[in-house]
Design a protein around this nucleic acid. Structure first.
Lengths: 146, 146
DNA sequence: GTATAAGTTGACATTGATGTCAGGTTCAAG
DNA sequence: CTTGAACCTGACATCAATGTCAACTTATAC
């Protein structure tokens, strides 16, 4: 598939896809005219890359990590060196901490939202069924590592 | 307390603390000489601010959110307007999605780390007790919202 | 008082992924 | 062949928090 379709299907801009290639995260065949031609598998890979970026990994680290990942086709993948594994373990722990912090922030937001929601119930006509949740369960809350 | 101590206790640089003040996130009394003087409560607030930054909120939104938060002293806080509440709800949902993605990335890293770890066990002398975990439970995995 | 540590403001730099634009080439359909 | 859409490369801009440096002032200990 070509870059436009890949961009549409992944929600990642063409600009970013070219950047990923430049950083060695993504390879593409080329047509005789020089246009990029991506395999179907690229969709999953791009989504993974986006997630890893969102997790705060830099492109260089992602580039080292990718060949060690089990691909969707289960093909042979490299094994991380001990050095890389240690590096990734540090990243994983950082992500764990980040998840805990995010859950924290989410709960803070929830509290403010719920307070506003309750206030609205007071002001509105009583017994007017509110749409949307008013309480959230505490998944994640306090369930994080550390 | 003064800015140096606050920086040390929160792990946030003095530069950032001054930036927070400039953006209206943090207030400080001033000594007669113009030095900032923070109340004890500032420690918690700075940590909260950092968490909210980590959650991807921008300083302007944090500035609007902070007065609606229940302070440690339980003091009177503003109630979010419906508009702000809706805004924050969108942020909360974004954070929820981010947590799910992060858990995804964490699991990907775990897989690579474990593969390398197992490889090392093969190469090393057999029956050599390895330090560190080799398997992780699946907290968060698939337990996210959506 | 004097030395030194800590604080102040202001300006400029950095980072890294992504946006945007320009000028040119390729592709696919008529 | 022609036309318009899609793609190419390369360059420059952006964003927002934070780093860094300079020149100066205040606080503290001797």
């Amino acid at each position: 598939m070509r870059i436009g379709e890949l961009a549409r299907r992944t929600g990642v801009s063409e600009r970013s896809l070219r950047y990923y290639e430049q950083r060695g995260l993504l390879v593409a065949d080329r047509t005789s005219g020089g246009h990029r031609d991506y395999p179907e598998q690229a969709v999953d890979r791009v989504i993974r890359i986006q997630e890893l970026f969102a997790a705060g990994l830099h492109s260089r680290k992602i580039a080292r990590l990718l060949p060690c990942m089990r691909d969707a086709d289960g093909g042979p993948s490299e094994i991380a060196t001990p050095q890389l594994a240690a590096d990734l373990a540090a990243e994983r722990d950082r992500i764990d901490r980040m998840i805990t912090e995010l859950a924290n922030s989410r709960d803070v937001l929830d509290e403010v939202i719920n307070a506003a929601s309750r206030r609205q119930i007071e002001e509105d006509a009583p017994r007017a069924g509110r749409s949307g949740r008013c309480r959230r369960d505490d998944r994640f809350t306090g369930a994080g590592p550390n």
